[in-house]
Amino acid sequence: MNYFLDLFFSGLTRGSIYALIALGYTMVYGIIGLINFAHGEIYMIGAFTALIIASLLTVLGMNGMAILVISGLAAMVYAAAYGYTIEKIAYKPLRNSPRLAPLISAIGMSIFLQNYVMLAQTSDFLPFPDLIPNFAFMEPYSDFIGSSDLVILLTTAVAMLLLTIMIKYTRMGRAMRATAQDMQMAMLVGIDVNRVISFTFIIGSVLAAIGGLLIASHVGQINFYIGFIAGIKAFTAAVLGGIGSIPGAVLGGFILGLTESFATGYVSSDYEDVFAFGLLVLILIFRPSGILGRSENQKV
């Protein structure tokens, strides 16, 4: 039973990591129907920014909490700027093109950013400092859930709640829903669609940057390639939960993480990907639009 709980919490940690990144994918898809493959790279750039600022502040002798907050803010601002710019450069000019064009553009952007960071920074792995402090009250439970696991879990839950509230109850949220339903109609009733889309990319990038900081701190190392692997898994989670749905992304992340964890624990870690993607195939056979995805008519 104890072993079961150990595996459960491992899966939960892994799942919330996937979920945090999956939120960005699902939001962008929900608004403009584009799979933003460069999202994983925004996550990686967020982690790199946090690392650079954190190293700088450590040299200046600041205390742990201040470093976490300032490097986190810097990462968010920097990543948001990247997200905004990518949308303007790579997606906006292609908004009325066939669906395949922005997809290829997104893959190109992803490869470009990876190589840019590799050349501008390094191809080596870099150590990432433990920015999340070890809470004293977590000490008795550290065998199966550490402080960083808890922080990631809570952040994912809070991010999901805030996003849901924002989309349901704010003016901007209503504008986002209107844009998602019919972009031209939204323009006709006076919604600044460009602003809504830019805003979506900024929110998605901020989430990716938070994820980058927390996950890099949890794992303890980064390099230019981390965004690709995390991005693929997070994208799988988003599809599993129903791409376009915010609670779906979180649910998909948890299901994926738990499946992998139990597959490792009770079968073999050699087959964790087999189980994870086997589950994806099964779910898509019976629910083609994902667990919480609504099957609606194709938009755009």
Binding site: Y3, F9, T13, F144, I229, T264, D270, E272
Partner: peptide, 20 residues
């Protein structure tokens, strides 16, 4: 005797198994 996936975001499940 087990293999792990290079680049995975987290290895805590295999760590729990080693412990178990």
């Amino acid at each position: 005797f087990s293999g792990i996936t290079p680049g995975a975001v987290d290895y805590s499940a295999i760590v729990q198994k080693i412990k178990y």
